Simulated assay, not measured.
Amino acid sequence: MVVFPGSNCDHDTEHAVASFRGIRPVMLWHNEHDLQGVDCIILPGGFSYGDYLRAGAIARFSPIMQEVIEFARKGHPVLGICNGFQVLLESGLLEGALSRNRDKKFICSRTTITVAKTSTLFTSRYLQDEVLSIPVAHGEGNYFAPPEVIERLEEHNQIVFRYCDAEGNVVPESNPNGSLHNIAGIINREGNVLGLMPHPERASEKRLGSDDGRRLFESIFDYIAGRQ
C-alpha cells in the first residue's frame, strides 16, 4: 500500500489484505523509491495532498510514482481504489478523468455495481454480471473521457465494473455520480492496472455489511500464487 499525505483508507486496506493467511502487507511511504519486492501495489483511498489542484494531481508527482509506473509497465498488478483511481488517471496508467460528482456533493453510501468483465486478474473469483454491494465515498467520482476513449474502452472490453440497481440493471437511476456509461471501474489494455471508485476494502467482512469486495483481493492473490 502506498501511503500519501492525506491517505485515510491505507490502514483499512492493510487490514483487509492482512486478513488473508500468508499475505504480508507492506506500507510504502510516498517519498520512497524502494518497493521492497512487493508482488502487487495498491493505491488506497483518501485525499492525497489534500486534493489540492484536483484529486490525485499532486500525488502523481510523488517520488514513489516513478517506481509504480515502471512496476506497471513491467506487467505487475496495480490496483487504485477511489483516490488511487484518480492517481492512476493522472499518471496516465489509465485513460480518462474524474470530475466533481453530478450533484456537486460528497457521496458516502452503499451502492451496487455489476461485474462487467471476469477475465481479469482482479475479478476471476466473480461471476459475469454478478451484482455486488460495495460502498462509495467520494466527491470527485464522475468518470468522463472523450467519445473516442469511451469507444475504445467499450471495444476492448476494458470496463470492469458499472453502477447498477439491485437487480443488475445498468440504468441512470443507479448512477450515483454521473459517470459516463455508469462506469465504476476500468482496466488498462494490458490487463494489469485496475482503477475503481467503490471501496472493496470496506466490503471485506460480513460484519461490515458485505464481504463482496473480498473476492477482488482473493483474485489478485490467486494470480500472484499462480505466477510464483
Rank of each mutant, 00 (worst) to 15 (best):
K74M: 14
V3Y: 15
T111A: 15
Q86K: 07
G56R: 02
G46C: 06
N83I: 01
G22I: 03
M197D: 05
G213L: 07
S133D: 14
G168I: 11
L208A: 08
S109L: 13
A137W: 00
V171E: 13
V171M: 11
M65D: 04
S174V: 11
T111Y: 07
F4R: 00
A137T: 06
S62R: 00
N142G: 04
I81H: 09
P44L: 04
L132M: 09
F20N: 04
L35T: 01
T112C: 12
R60W: 01
P200L: 08
K206N: 14
L88K: 00
F61E: 11
E167S: 15
S7K: 05
P146Y: 15
I41F: 03
I81A: 13
V68A: 10
D222Y: 05
I150T: 08
A57W: 04
E155W: 12
E140K: 10
A72M: 06
D222W: 05
Q128L: 14
P63D: 06
G178Y: 06
F161I: 07
S48V: 04
H30T: 06
T114H: 04
P200W: 10
G6K: 02
G37W: 04
E70Y: 14
A55N: 07
F85W: 08
M27D: 11
P172Y: 06
F106C: 05
R202V: 09
L93D: 01
R100Y: 12
S99L: 13
Y49G: 09
G168K: 09
D212Q: 10
L28R: 08
E32I: 08
F217N: 03
S174E: 13
A184P: 04
I134Q: 08
P146F: 13
N182G: 07
G56D: 00
G195A: 08
L194R: 02
H11I: 15
